[in-house]
Nucleic acid binder design. Structure first.
Lengths: 205, 205
DNA sequence: GTCTATATTGCGATAGAC
DNA sequence: GTCTATCGCAATATAGAC
């Protein structure tokens, strides 16, 4: 418990910290326990000791990452009492989060393309909550008359989520096919909100 | 060369046919050449013999699948001389293709999440052409005055592609979080086009 | 061309010393 | 708790018989 505790946590925490980028980058299969342990300066056997196996470590890392994202969104959207402000804050917040935490979208995309046993247990509950909050904000905005009467909150939510997530899902590699990476990506949240507001809003933004 | 040639092609073709769904479903790593060969009624060694290895087989399958998609789009979009009709046909055609060929989106998503060596050589050229055609249609529509003056064709293309692809990228599993799978998915192309047209069009659709 | 048999590599998990 | 050593398994690729 000397100076190591200042710069480094215990073995368990170090394993999770080094596993996160490796799982995100390479996926479950290609990120080996040996590599994760080496990166953490720990012994491969410690993975079984602390997490009961590779899958337990993956699950702990994924749960941790999603908890961060939900804390981010929870704080953000509860700060805005107005439903229209919530919607705007969803779009801008998502861009900010993905820009600050590039590994997160890789976890999500990978679980979609290739669900692990964690999918049902950790992904579904989290995404259900986030999607539910967005749909509720859209329903409330419609009720208040801020959005066109008859707007289907489920359809509107999926379109908003599509526009906000796609560019990150297809990754930096595909970004170059659609947009010049720098300036156009900056313009995207405004373009999304402008299109959406003109498309379904009653008032001009 | 008896009756087998009627129902079954040669070993090479059979290998590609059985590899396609297995690669799409499980990805490159988890689809073993043993399984692919067994499914094709062929010998595992035939993969190396005909394709020079597992990666060669994967590349052949992927190229084949993309060629199909591009034939589909090429035929579809060249039938419509009007740029606005091209745009509508892009959205509806994408939904039709993904509904008819559910494996294709899995290839795409997997290559995004986890690029193989084929990514640069086969994915990028194909998606560049498709995205280019869409952007050109949007630019022409703007020039003709069908879309708002000042519409950025790159931004508009990425938003249209986002809305048309996201629901397939996130897969059947996530569809249940956003939408009831049957009826709402049917309504999505109309909802996309309606939002887009009201958002950037000059004329009401 | 097609097969069997095998060489080689890398993985996760664990037993047992310390 | 942490280590070394190793077990058992599954993968691709290939040599060589037919």
């Amino acid at each position: 418990m000397g100076r190591e505790t200042i710069l480094e946590d215990g073995v368990k925490e170090r394993l999770m910290a080094s596993a996160r980028p490796l799982f995100a980058e390479r996926g479950f299969d290609r990120a080996s326990v040996r590599d994760i342990a080496r990166e953490a300066g720990a012994n491969p056997a410690a993975v079984s000791y602390y997490f009961g196996g590779k899958e337990g470590l993956y699950r702990a890392v994924l749960e941790d990452a999603w908890a961060e994202l939900e804390r981010h969104f929870g704080a953000l959207m509860s700060e805005c009492p107005e439903p229209m402000a919530k919607i705007e804050s969803f779009v801008r917040g998502l861009f900010a989060f993905h820009a600050a935490n590039p590994y997160m979208i890789r976890f999500i995309n990978r679980e979609m393309a290739d669900p692990t046993p964690c999918f049902e247990a950790v992904i579904i509950p989290h995404v259900t909550r986030v999607a539910g909050a967005l749909r509720a904000a859209l329903a409330e905005a419609t009720e208040r008359g801020d959005l066109e009467k008859g707007t289907d909150p489920a359809l509107a939510a999926v379109l908003l989520a599509s526009m906000s997530n796609y560019i990150f899902l297809v990754g930096p590699v595909a970004r170059r096919v659609f947009l010049d990476p720098g300036p156009s990506l900056q313009k995207l949240p405004d373009a999304i909100l402008s299109l959406f507001m003109k498309g379904v809003s009653c008032r001009e933004a």
